[in-house]
Design a protein around this nucleic acid. Structure first.
Lengths: 160, 160
DNA sequence: GCCGATAAGTCAATATTACTGACGTAATTT
DNA sequence: AAATTACGTCAGTAATATTGACTTATCGGC
């Protein structure tokens, strides 16, 4: 593979800065209207997403994914629990743990937010085609750090 | 192109949520250490980037790109001007405008921040290869809105 | 069974980034 | 001359994040 020796030129990397800024801005914006109706923000959406994708996740594992402080997460989590979107249950082997999961209402809300993001994502994927999507995956995986890449690999294994 | 009829399945779209979160998180984090040393934040970096890529940009055009309010930008811009990273000059045809550009120090700082992001981007691009990068571009362009796509197309035309 | 380490929650204070709405000034357009 | 535009600014507020210290309950090793 001779292309792996070709150094990406600076203009390519400049473009990537723009792509990441705009795509992330508009992708996250997609769910904002639905969130604002409920008085919730993006931090709540992120928590809902990762709890929904990882039912029974511990607080410390969630902290490790989000990379925010315990205090920042505590506010978001207690609001989500007050409103009945998230519930806790003590760990079966380790009772210090409070395993997090979405309630029925939480699943419904998370799905609604996901649908708004699908509206942006689905046309982009269809227009770009499967090969482009595979390339997108490879580049995005390469940008994130090792721990994040391990998470993605574990959750979205090839034959999954 | 039969693949354009294939609907992306939900697991693909779920993966995209993870990819966007982690790649954006780690990409933006890359410049944070250098920013923190100077007491600056990501908002300052974003302004430096778009002024640097668009010398002479007007305040309202910059507002349209960043999609923040005038007040949020004002604070960031005045800090950057106080510290001598950004300067203004009146528009030649329309003297109401304050055209923004980086000073020598601003160019140096922006380049330093860019280098930290290159450290993440360059290995990802090299490992993924040119075809993957092209796919990455197509998908990311598809996710952003029309105005953002027009900006990217104008700034990074095929034969550029 | 004791004891250090761990999981989680909490308190207090603060910073960054963002928002809304209103108002003022200068320059341009009609 | 009047309306509009570009920019700046003031006041108040909200969401998200931070650091540091402290408590409670539980676990694991000795």
């Amino acid at each position: 593979m001779p292309e792996s020796k070709v150094d990406p030129v600076e203009t390519d990397l400049r473009m990537a800065q723009d792509l990441l800024f705009f795509a992330y801005r508009d992708f996250t914006n997609a769910a904002d209207v639905a969130l604002a109706e409920l008085g919730l923000g993006r931090a709540h959406h992120r928590a809902l997403h990762f709890i929904g994708r990882n039912p029974g996740i511990t607080v410390s594992d969630l902290l490790g994914i989000l990379r925010i402080t315990k205090q920042s997460l505590a506010r978001v989590l207690s609001e989500l629990m007050e409103r009945g979107y998230v519930a806790q249950s003590p760990g079966s082997t380790d009772r210090r743990q409070r395993l997090l999961h979405l309630t029925g209402a939480g699943i419904t809300l998370e799905r609604r937010l996901f649908e708004r993001q699908q509206d942006r994502l689905r046309p982009a994927y269809r227009a770009a085609g499967p090969d482009a999507v595979a390339g997108f995956r490879r580049v995005m995986s390469g940008i994130m750090d090792d721990a994040a890449r391990a998470y993605v690999d574990a959750h979205h294994a090839k034959g999954d």
